[in-house]
């Protein structure tokens, strides 16, 4: 075999260093020359405000990885290519990543993808398993880098504070809720409250917080959410009146349509907030939420227009990412909103 071409998707994990050297080692085992393609897949495109920052980080990571490669390769024949993927599209689920890798692999004739076991693109949680399945589906051969156990250990230590944050946060949420239910001045409630909060946080901390908590951002988000609620209620009342007028009219002038809106919010809590806000606003009903592709049933045209104007999406982005990121074009302007037929559900 003359030469191997391997694709190594990188992300900022503790095992990324080992993954790179594994790629070099295993690639040189059965071939004398190796072409390593280092890629970083960006979850956001450059249109959204946080895209630039991520691009910057990606370039730094690539530069580091190039240095590592140079170290590991020694005098073997290793060529390096690096690229940033996904700055012209919005990568979301594992399938999007797999598609992006496959496209790149096709272009450059890559034989093998070496995946970091801790591969974690963007801020979402690990997507390794579904990613492997999607790569299988895409017909791309892959290899999971054999990283050593110390790395795993290191990861647990590294995550120690994060885990503590989760337990801590849930403990106080639960304890606070308990005292709201009970009487904060009664000793029995205080004692049992601590016990209950302990049980709740021990059993559910990792269930509730599937995402890393940020000590600064998370409280700010909570505050911003408090501002969001009155706005949402106002929207709900407004839309409810509109829908009531339509329904109570004898002719009932409804015009149901199925629309697809590609949103620009992260999965998990932001998606829940957006999907539920859309559902709570009468006239629009989220039928499906496949990653960022929402299939929304709209009942009256004005509700559809509101949806396409994306005011709720902006509000949700404001809650989770701050004022800066709320300034994005509406789904209509982005071309992310379309009316589809009912058979495409």
């Amino acid at each position: 075999m003359a030469g191997n071409r391997v694709l190594v998707p990188l992300s900022d994990t503790v095992t990324v260093r080992q993954t790179v050297s594994y790629a070099v080692r295993s690639g040189l085992e059965d071939a004398d020359s190796l072409e390593v393609h280092l890629v970083v897949a960006l979850p956001h495109d450059t249109e959204v405000p946080e895209g630039d920052e991520q691009r910057e980080e990606a370039n730094q990571l690539l530069a580091r990885a190039r240095r590592w490669l140079a170290e590991d390769a020694g005098d073997a024949d290793v060529t390096v290519e690096s690229a940033v993927l996904g700055d012209d599209e919005y990568l979301f689920g594992p399938r999007d990543y797999a598609d992006a890798f496959e496209e790149y692999a096709d272009e450059h004739g890559v034989d093998l993808v070496v995946i970091d076991p801790e591969y974690k693109p963007g801020v979402t949680s690990s997507i390794l398993q579904p990613l492997e399945r999607e790569l299988d589906a895409a017909g791309l051969s892959y290899d999971e880098a054999a990283v050593e156990r110390p790395a795993r250990h290191e990861r647990l230590v590294g995550e120690g504070t994060e885990r503590f944050d989760r337990y801590f946060a849930l403990f106080w949420i639960s304890f606070g809720f308990y005292l709201v239910l009970g009487d904060p001045t009664y000793w029995f409630d205080l004692v049992t409250g601590v016990a209950v909060a302990g049980i709740v946080s021990a059993s559910l901390a990792n269930v509730t917080f599937s995402f890393p908590l940020d000590r600064i951002e998370s409280p700010i988000r909570t505050v911003r959410f408090a501002f969001y609620v009155p706005y949402l209620i106002w929207e709900i009342v407004k839309a409810n009146v509109a829908i009531s007028v339509v329904i109570l009219r004898p002719s009932m002038p409804i015009a149901p349509t199925i629309t697809r809106v590609n949103t620009r919010v992260r999965s998990g809590l932001p998606l829940l907030a957006l999907a539920n806000s859309i559902t709570l606003t009468p006239g629009t009903l989220t039928v499906r939420a496949n990653d960022q592709r929402l299939i929304v049933h709209t009942l009256i045209p004005s509700a559809r227009e509101d949806l396409f104007d994306g005011s709720l999406e902006r509000a949700v982005r404001f809650v989770f990412n701050g004022r800066e990121s709320a300034r994005i074009p509406s789904p209509r302007e982005r071309g992310d909103a379309e009316i589809i037929g009912g058979d495409e559900l």
Binding site: I236, A239, N240, I243, S244, I247, I254, P256, T279, L280, T281, P282, G283, T284, L285, V287, H297, L299
Partner: peptide
């Protein structure tokens, strides 16, 4: 789908 609008939201 249309019923779900009023049933859930209104």
């Amino acid at each position: 789908y249309a019923r779900a609008h009023t049933a859930s939201q209104t």
